[in-house]
Write a protein that binds this DNA or RNA. Structure first.
Lengths: 233, 233
DNA sequence: GACTTTAGTAGCCATCCGCTACTAATTCGA
DNA sequence: TCGAATTAGTAGCGGATGGCTACTAAAGTC
């Protein structure tokens, strides 16, 4: 192997055009919806866009994403996490060479529909998007599904007190698959994540449900073995 | 809520200085080591650096990371995954405003020590690094530990045939904790990931070990319930 | 009051998994 | 030559996990 000398080459930074792209997700009609903006320019190549913007001078990506989310929603999102950086190979509507993408979760609120050029669209019925935005939406859902077990994402989509059926519905919606009621509750008990309040809520028909609040308690770190999940290259 | 009109503002991209930063990890002495480069400039603020470079014109981040890895190692890494984008708030040695960071895994090879300005350093004994590089190393280890169950990372660090003890050692090293032998093997059998060859290897003392090869077989997707792992905000 | 609807629980049973305790095959040293 | 040491590999106990069926509970509807 020949001698190599890497650092001696002294890399230097290069300027690239960058964007912050945001996939805001919300529960809607038993499914997940993402916030799309209608293009202002009727002749633009992309009629629908994820909210995006350039980072400001010296602004860290996380701050830029939070600023963008607040600008679109009027309020901060319930959760905000970085997805990944996407680059050339997938076209960006603003022709940014680099996109740092984020996923935000927003509690369901029909009133939040106010901005006339913004629309919540079911993630199963997306219109044509720029390829990079399409990839970001897909990655956003994946990130949520992978992180939901390690982070109280579902709880942040609910008010401070909630019924266990509501909680389960959020989990099913974020995971995109049904869960078994008894198993869900048993696992929840074992995880010491919620505690009952002394309130009950009667909503239409059926037995009233007890309200719970998110109150995670410490539990011994059950360090597992290896799971060999899903490995298939 | 006032009317808002987001897209009408027509965001435009802005140029920022960008870098690709790389944490190459390898098994070494029963622990994980990361490849550091010694700064060429003796008076530089940072004496040790992760390999990094600017992306070339129109080059996607993944390609840039692969190019960088090949340049440093002479060969492609066994695995290469994006970690995250880091921005201002943590200083980069080249003052890049934005870093897209990657983690690469490299099989143990003592001969790979050849580059005179490169050094494998145990991740528990890192020298002082630029804060952003320090954060990247920490995040690199986290990414590996989170992905190891879903991706055959460990197998890529081994030659085509290997003993189960070698495989377990790689898992323990990547996870940073010991695993129980019998449980490890039972889970491995259940996962249909390896198949025995008809070869055995006798290495020093002790009973010879049978050699296995990585040969993942399809298995029904065991769609689990919710795990409520580790949730603690 | 019978029926429907939603909430919540009991408990069976198969699987998972940590662990102890073994057996097997080799090298080393007396 | 024959233990002792060392590494490979397995058996199987027993507790925990988790999917599922089948129940009970409390409300509204007709």
């Amino acid at each position: 192997m020949r001698e190599r000398s890497i650092a001696a080459q002294r890399p230097s930074v290069r300027a690239v055009t960058a964007a912050i792209d945001l996939a805001l997700l919300t529960p809607r009609d038993g499914s997940l919806a993402v916030l799309l903006l209608r293009s202002a320019d009727a002749r633009a190549r992309d009629r629908w866009l994820l909210p995006w913007d350039a980072p400001r001078h010296e602004e860290p990506p996380d701050q830029a994403a939070m600023r963008l989310a607040r600008g679109v929603l009027g309020v901060p999102p319930a959760a905000l996490e970085q997805i990944a950086a996407f680059g050339n190979g997938r076209r960006h509507p603003g022709e940014a060479q680099l996109s740092v993408s984020f996923v935000g979760l927003v509690p369901h609120n029909p009133a939040a529909q106010s901005a006339d050029n913004a629309l919540w669209v079911d993630i199963e019925q997306l219109p044509l998007l720029a390829p990079r935005h399409r990839a970001i939406v897909d990655a956003a859902v994946d990130v949520v599904r992978k992180r939901i077990d390690q982070s109280p994402l579902a709880f942040r989509l609910l008010p401070p007190s909630f019924t266990l059926s509501e909680l389960q519905a959020i989990y099913e919606l974020l995971l995109g698959r049904p869960l078994h009621k008894a198993s869900f509750r048993r696992a929840l008990q074992a995880a010491l994540l919620v505690e009952p309040t002394d309130e009950w809520r009667s909503e239409g028909r059926g037995r009233p449900a007890q309200l719970y609040r998110y109150a995670p308690r410490r539990r011994r770190g059950t360090r597992r073995g290896v799971r060999f999940d899903l490995i298939a290259d």
